[in-house]
Structures are given as C-alpha cells and as structure tokens.
Amino acid sequence: MNWLDTLVQGLLLGGLYALFAAGLSLVFGVMRLVNLAHGDLIVLAAYLILMITTALGINPFLAALFALPVMFALGWVLQTYLLNRVLGEDILPPLLVTFGLSVVIQNVLLQGFTADSRKLAAGAIESQSLPLGPVTVGVMPLMTLVTAVLVIVVLNQVFYRTALGRAFRATSDDMVTVQLMGIQPQRVFAIATGIALVVATIAALFLGTRSNFDPSIGPARLLYAFEAVIIGGLGSLWGTLAGGLIIGVAQALGAAINPEWQILAGHIAFVAVLLVRPRGLFPRAND
C-alpha cells in the first residue's frame, strides 16, 4: 500500500464530506437546529441537477447553476413554513419533523425516480488526472476539495465580514435582543437554511459526478456530515472542514486495509476523537 497516495485520496474524499457538512454546520451555528433531512436534501439536489441536465441537455455544472436558486428557495420555504414552527427549547419536535421530512423525501424520490442508481455525466473531465509530485490525483476529486475550501472561506467571510453574518451571529447569541435591532430571527433562519441548501447543491453536484446515487443514500451522507461537524466542534466552519478531512482520511486508510472497513474506519475515528475531546477539535468559545 502506498501511504502517501492513500492519504491524498483520503483528503480528497474528505473535501466531499466537508461539502456535505458545511451547510449542516452553518444551520447548527445559527439556530442550533439539527437537520436530519440534510443528507436527503443533498440527494434531492442531485436529482434536481439530473433533471435539469436531461431536460435542457446541458452539462451538470451549468445545470447546478440553475438548481442553486431553486434550492435556496426550497430552504427558505422549508424554514419559514415548517422548521420555524418547531424550533424551541424542546429538541424533540425539530428532530422528529426533520426525521419525518427525511423519510418523505427518500420515498418521494423513490416513487419518482425508482431505486435505480443514477450518475451525473460530466464528460471527459471525469477521467482526467494530474500528476502532483509523487502521486496522481483525479481532476474531479481535486476540484471537490478546492471547492470545499472555497465554500468554507466564503461562508466564513459572510459570517464574519457582512451585515448578514452579523445578524447570523447576533441571532444565535440572543434571539430576543436581536429583535430590538429590527431583525426578525425567523427571516435570518430562513436565509441561513437557504444558504445551507445552496451549499448542499454544490455538494450534490460533486456527489453525483463522482459516484452513483439513488434515493436511499441520504442518511449515510448525513452521518458522515454529522461526524465531520461534531469532530470539528459545533459552530466552527474551519473545524467542519478539518472534521471532513479526518473522516475522509480515516475511510481511505480503512479501505486500503480492507475495502469492507472503509465506513467502519470513519465511524471509529469519530468515536475516538469524541472520547478524547467531547466538544470536538475547535469548539466555539461561548457555547
């Protein structure tokens, strides 16, 4: 086994997991909401891109551009008409509602698209690779990782450099006082979930171009994403990226030893990190 190659492939895979996790991390950071339907929403976005690709006969990258505003609107509507109604002290209602949503999305997709696995055809770029020092990396996996880093950078900029980000942080701090600033928490939450689904759409693009997907794969993606978020520390976007990379590397190492151990190795890394650091690697100071 080539250790360096395994490590690099793991980091590249981790980029995908960081993309799965970034939206989840944002939503948790802003409103302490754990969205159990996040994985299924990513899969939904992948089907949306697929539909646009086939309907307009265009490249999935272009199709994703059309999917982004649709998914933003979906997030906005979902938050405004469903999730805002169940957010509160009691964690049970939001958990059960997003769990219900997860089952509904999965089975609606199953009804609409059957259980057959699909793929987004990105063309020649899929098989292209670059020599990078002693290892060779695929162009698509590299793009995934670069995109993940960019997404985290942009989200951080939004979070810490814009009026919207101020509203995100202030609302997360104190939902009542922020209303005295003329800010409606419900609207802030709706925008946050909209952005989370935009990121989910980007994740879906790379998920769908890299591998097959079918309506049932959402919950597994959700688990990887959650592991990344929790390992990184709740509410820290850079932590989420680190968490994604750790899960990716652990899975790649596990797979290198025995292909059946890939997922198991990721889970075990998660458990190991939490046993040592229950609050994750980069916990936010005032939580």
Binding site: R166, R169, D173, V178, M181, G182, I183
Partner: peptide, 30 residues
C-alpha cells in the same frame, strides 16, 4: 424599532459573538 423606538435593555444584553464595533453597527442595520 423601525418605527423609531429603540431600547437599551436591562442588563445591557450585548451580543457576545460580536465585537464592540459590530454591536454598534447591528444597532443601525435596519
């Protein structure tokens, strides 16, 4: 607030995640 009534709440209630300047800026955001 938008109609023109602002409050300094009891206990100040600053936003701990925001800097001093950001706390001021958010007051005039809307």
């Amino acid at each position: 607030l938008k109609a023109g009534i602002a409050m300094v709440p009891e206990g100040r209630r600053l936003f701990p995640s925001l800097t001093v300047e950001e706390n001021l800026l958010i007051g005039g955001q809307k």
